Simulated scan of single mutants.
Amino acid sequence: MKNNIFHSPPALENEKIKLIPLEVHHSAALLEANDPEIWRFMFNEITTLEQMDQWVTTAVRLRDQQTALPFAVVLKEQNRIIGSTRLFEINLSQKSCELGSTWYSKENQRSFVNSSCKYLILRYCFEELGMMRVQLKTDERNLRSQKAIERLGAVKEGVLRKERILSGGYVRNAVLYSIIDEEWPAVKAGFALRDSKY
């Protein structure tokens, strides 16, 4: 039954943010939200509509292959797409997945947006999909991302050496984090505490 998530992917939302299934026609809105600096630590570097089209098409293809759920991030107050995030490496039989490929427009970084998105997706993973493990990876050089992941309550597991070659040829090391099912109640409580401060 859970395989239906790929054929009828969910929309996840709270009062400020809505995560909608990513579609090819979102490319132009994503390019408008884009800034080249966003891609510094990511696999691709996107500056043109053609590159964004390719990035979105690849994400949608992974959903068709039943290994990923990519989302466009909508700021509800403005009804505007401000970035993207996704679940991938989804293995329903092993109850595990990875949360990543996340980026937001520069003006929405270091705001409530990331916390809202992560909460919606993690709640979906643990409370609806019954996941045992959700992992997150980030470039070893990306200290801001590491701090953000650690603020979520994720546990640092180590460094994956020479984890991938980025589009510019740089060979990166990746820092690996995870949240497991028995940790979710404490992580969820941490979100509630942070949200009460907004």
Rank of each mutant, 00 (worst) to 15 (best):
T67K: 14
T67S: 15
T67A: 12
A68N: 05
A68Q: 03
A68D: 04
A68K: 02
L69K: 01
L69T: 03
L69E: 02
L69Q: 02
L69A: 04
P70M: 12
P70I: 06
P70A: 10
F71D: 06
F71R: 02
A72T: 05
A72K: 01
A72S: 14
A72F: 02
A72Y: 01
A72D: 09
V73K: 02
V74Q: 03
V74M: 04
V74T: 04
L75D: 14
L75C: 07
K76F: 09
E77G: 04
E77Q: 14
N79R: 13
N79K: 14
N79F: 08
R80S: 01
I81Q: 01
I82K: 01
I82G: 00
G83I: 01
G83M: 07
S84E: 11
S84A: 14
R86I: 05
R86E: 13
F88I: 08
E89V: 09
N91L: 07
N91W: 07
N91P: 06
N91A: 12
L92H: 10
S93M: 05
Q94F: 11
Q94R: 13
Q94G: 10
K95C: 06
S96A: 11
C97L: 13
C97P: 09
C97N: 04
E98L: 05
E98H: 13
L99G: 01
L99Y: 10
L99S: 07
L99K: 00
G100F: 07
S101Q: 05
S101N: 05
S101K: 04
S101P: 03
W103G: 02
Y104R: 02
Y104T: 09
S105W: 07
S105K: 15
K106M: 13
K106W: 11
E107Y: 03
N108Y: 15
N108M: 14
N108T: 03
N108R: 11
Q109M: 10
R110L: 08
R110S: 13
S111D: 08
S111C: 08
F112M: 08
F112V: 06
V113M: 10
N114Q: 09
N114R: 06
N114P: 03
